[in-house]
Design a protein around this nucleic acid. Structure first.
Lengths: 192, 192
DNA sequence: CGCGACGTTGATTTGCCTCAACGATTGTGG
DNA sequence: CCACAATCGTTGAGGCAAATCAACGTCGCG
């Protein structure tokens, strides 16, 4: 399968693989095509999958007891997404993972991932580095959350992730910033 | 050196090493003893070290243009600490890492760490798993920050990390929660 | 076309901040 | 070891940012 082959190369574009390694990797990645609005993970699920976004946009969010939504992460092309708390710790999901646009995803499950680490050890390093960068970004976001005003956080978000904007409704952004849609509306008005 | 040897085993307690591996690891870890108030990383530093806390307590915090402090992370026995944004990305530090008590630290620098990954590949996995757990904890903290009131965040923090409390002043906790010391004082009053 | 989802605006309330003053605690030098 | 200063924590009054509640305009889609 030549075309799937090239997708695998795209996922791990910083690594070079032999044909036999590509075969190994292909055997544990599964392509899923989802439509806007589709849900990949629901609260209470056991999350044993990690998702690579080849195309489209997804978000991970939590719904509290009052039904309010809080977005923890957006993901677009070439990002990985899941409910990481559940995926890494084995706890049940408290998050929902939802497609914000028609998307093409490559999915790998937890056991297969561990197996893959054994088969091709430099993939361990690959994911460690991905994780390091994501971790650094989260640290910055925590700092932003405790140190900046809503307006500053909004401007910072828009400047940092301009490519994501086109997939988002205002209420997605508000739920990411931890403010209401009304407040976001007023912030946008003040800035214009 | 029998005693240093045992410390290495403590740092990597989920792994088993041969004597020659222990020698390799010892050669890249350096013990530092710091006093309460000592600074390990300053804003503007190139951060090429990762710190393992054998004993004591440290924190990583940011100082904004008005001189206000925002604590991003505390660390106690058996935690790792640094300015991760700087350490992972190679950017200059925007954080300060400070000892909140007399502490015993084991320090490894970035190049040595990469070298160690090559020498003993399962250490890659060890750090990946550490990072996964830290990442999950950060995701929870972000959610807490955007979804909970200051009082809820305070109670959640105290319940989750009771062992850290004894090292902290109230203003440390306030700077971690993103509130003022006055607000924290009032929250404590309301809860009692 | 008509309905539901989305975004905006206004009035009011609330949670946390700011500024200021004052106890309590800690630590240090005489 | 005490005295005193500095640091830390608490309390009060007032202000501001963002939430809440409510109404209404707009847009996109079945």
């Amino acid at each position: 399968m030549r075309s799937d082959n090239s997708k695998i190369k795209e996922i791990f574009k910083t690594l070079d693989f032999s044909d036999s390694e590509i075969k190994i990797i292909e055997s544990v990645f599964h392509k899923i095509v989802v439509k806007k609005g589709d849900i990949l993970v629901r609260p209470g699920d056991l999350v044993d999958s990690h998702y690579y976004i080849l195309e489209g946009c997804l978000r991970t969010f939590h719904i509290d007891s009052q039904g309010k939504e809080y977005t923890v992460q957006f993901g677009i092309k070439d990002w990985w997404i899941s409910d990481y708390t559940a995926f890494f710790t084995g706890e049940k999901a408290i998050m929902t993972v939802e497609a914000l646009a028609d998307s093409i995803i490559y999915k790998i499950n937890s056991n297969h991932k561990e197996w893959l680490y054994d088969q091709i050890p430099r993939i361990d390093r690959f994911f460690r580095i991905k994780l390091e960068r994501a971790f650094a970004a989260f640290q910055k976001r925590i700092l932003s959350g405790i140190s900046q005003s809503a307006s500053d956080r909004y401007q910072h978000f828009m400047a940092t992730y301009p490519e994501i904007e086109k997939y988002l409704k205002n209420y997605h952004i508000a739920s990411y910033l931890g403010i209401t849609t009304e407040s976001l509306s007023r912030i946008r008005k003040d800035l214009s």
